[in-house]
Design a protein around this nucleic acid. Sequence first.
DNA 1: TTGATGCTGCCGGAATCTGGCAGGAGCACC
DNA 2: GGTGCTCCTGCCAGATTCCGGCAGCATCAA
Lengths: 231, 231
Amino acid sequence: MSRSERLFDLLHALRRHRRPVSGRVLAEEIGVSLRTLYRDIASLQAMGASIEGEPGVGYVLKPGFLLPPLMFSPEEIEALVLGSRWVADRADDRLSGAARSALARIGAVLPDDLRETFEGSALLVGPGTPAPSVAVDPALLRRAIRTERKLALCYRDGTGAASERIVWPFALAFFDSVRILLGWCELRQGFRHFRTDRIAAADLLGTRYPRRRQALLKDWRRAEGITDPAD
Amino acid sequence: MSRSERLFDLLHALRRHRRPVSGRVLAEEIGVSLRTLYRDIASLQAMGASIEGEPGVGYVLKPGFLLPPLMFSPEEIEALVLGSRWVADRADDRLSGAARSALARIGAVLPDDLRETFEGSALLVGPGTPAPSVAVDPALLRRAIRTERKLALCYRDGTGAASERIVWPFALAFFDSVRILLGWCELRQGFRHFRTDRIAAADLLGTRYPRRRQALLKDWRRAEGITDPAD
DNA sequence: TTGATGCTGCCGGAATCTGGCAGGAGCACC
DNA sequence: GGTGCTCCTGCCAGATTCCGGCAGCATCAA
């Protein structure tokens, strides 16, 4: 692989990892010695890429470099189509429609050869176990999360006992057959999860909750011992 | 100026002119001999750039090498991120890497406000039932499908009985816990499906099968009474 | 035909690239 | 204070690539 080609690759590798990456890892990924990697980074920086390196941490590429990324590879197209099909099949109507329309936008910018891959993708999503019917509009839950606003829930737990509580919703997790709303429960002063099919009613309150949902998610991950998949 | 830097410049110059530009002009603009310019163009083409040169006219950069800025609605972004996360979590290593990589590309061309939605997406994919270990490389199966080539399978069915057969693979279906290869079986002269975890061995044969995989998929859909989701 | 242009092969000298080593410096953690 | 991780730089020698020039062919349009 020529040096120039490698620089494109390096740029993409940096974009792929959003967390700081050590030079050693990058060098291995690209297949080049550490010394050369440092040189390559310096080259990209000289060309105007805002790559920041901190001793003991690694490199991060700040967004906004003049050069747009390269086109998708065929495998990437297949991955996007498959993922969108899964969303289209499994999510609620709004999200499912959004998946289809996002896919259409992507299709519109593909060159002819990739459009063939795109249209003829042979990766299908089998129908899953049908999702239990849900009383509240999932779009409402997502809006609450996105705008970081409190939610008044009327919830029936596994034993059938009903309760009312105020929660700070910060994420929605998709499992094979159920969806689970993650939130901080004001009543219990702790993280709780709620199966969406057991939420009898949800009221979007006007008040925002006092923390950033990213921070809540991070705390929750630590509490549950779940590592961030972005790492 | 180093060669790599020059290639970036050349790309820039090509994007600037939308009309065909002669190699001579480009060479002067960049400050390099004509011979070298031809070599540079060839390098970019080798990297996948669709630069078209017509004798007597000049060069034009067709869209399809660099990903243009894309505009999505926030909900579309969430759908793409969620879908890609699902693929990243559930598919084999290659496809999963492709999902992450495609996502990074999309993230890089989003305007700032959308990038916020993109990075802070709160839709998670729960860990599924762990996929049974698979003896054959799923990438091989996908390649067979993509190139419409026959596959020699060594398969153990549900009862444990082993068989060898030649199939025409035309699709791969992802279920919650298993993946299923769809194919036309030469032995049985009919459509058959194969759980990938029960495929003991698969040989990619050199011969292409005589029908288009789209047509096979359509026939299969009709035979199974499954409507095309694209309708 | 003529001219403009794209494109390729060849060559030898020049420039660059590469990996390894040694060392410095910042930072966090113990 | 020591240890470990990291970024970063200088130096060097051998390998590799790059570069310009030239000569020639192909294609297209006037």
